[in-house]
Design a protein around this nucleic acid. Structure first.
Lengths: 121, 121
DNA sequence: TTTAATGCAAATACTTTGCAGGAAA
DNA sequence: TTTCCTGCAAAGTATTTGCATTAAA
């Protein structure tokens, strides 16, 4: 793995969840790392083909990456004030696993998010 | 619903599965329908906000649409071939409700999707 | 020296928006 | 008229690619 890929990987580790190429690029830039956007994209592709990271799509189609096997959590988001709570997703993990097995899917991942109005709003 | 939205809807019906805006546009064009790409996009957005169609993302980030039943369901998507299975989400509904209550959220909704490799891939 | 990595700029693809003309109410 | 619909062209965004430069081996 080359230097850029290592930096990108470290950034994803620091984020601890999903981040898009653009976000990784911005974080590195803010830290004073001189790295090009192209290089970030290429590093992510390389990490992807080495199965070190996982890719998903956001609602708007932007690709988001995260470390494979990373413990992940879910979010409870207030649709009024944007306040976000990190929550446990044990039930989801189980559900995803059962559903996948039932339909012969393997190598699975999932996304889940709850949105509503928080107590303050 | 206006004339364009009806045409787009009919096209999705004819396709009987997922189709991107670009594909809907091409199919209509081939059939001699004089309709602009912009109008197709706007029709799809309108159908989407009326919850008449469902949207998902292909691997490359292109948005794909299809008619959706009125029942709330979730998707199990193959990240290689895009094959999609509609699945039950009873466990999710319960989880979302419990989590929301626990944190004082109300008026909630949720999204959940599972992705992986299907048996053919 | 020989190879691989880098990054700017241009190209590409999907999608949205501004705007002016046209249809409908 | 007044409002909505339409579609071209332009803008916007994420991503990839061509190519010349630079770093590394």
């Amino acid at each position: 793995m080359n230097k850029s890929a290592t930096k990108v990987l470290a950034t994803l580790e620091r984020v601890g969840g999903f981040a898009s190429a653009q976000e990784v690029f911005q974080k590195l830039e803010r830290d004073g790392d001189r790295i090009g956007l192209t290089t970030v994209y290429r590093a992510l592709q390389s990490l992807l083909s080495d199965k070190i990271v996982d890719v998903l799509r956001r609602e708007d189609g932007e690709a988001i990456y995260r470390l494979c096997g990373d413990q992940h959590h879910h979010h409870l988001v207030c649709k009024n004030c944007g306040d976000t709570v990190e929550i446990e997703g044990g039930a989801i993990e189980k559900w995803a696993k059962v559903m996948a097995e039932e339909h012969g899917f393997r190598d699975i991942g999932h996304t889940a998010e709850i949105f509503g109005l928080c107590s303050k709003c």
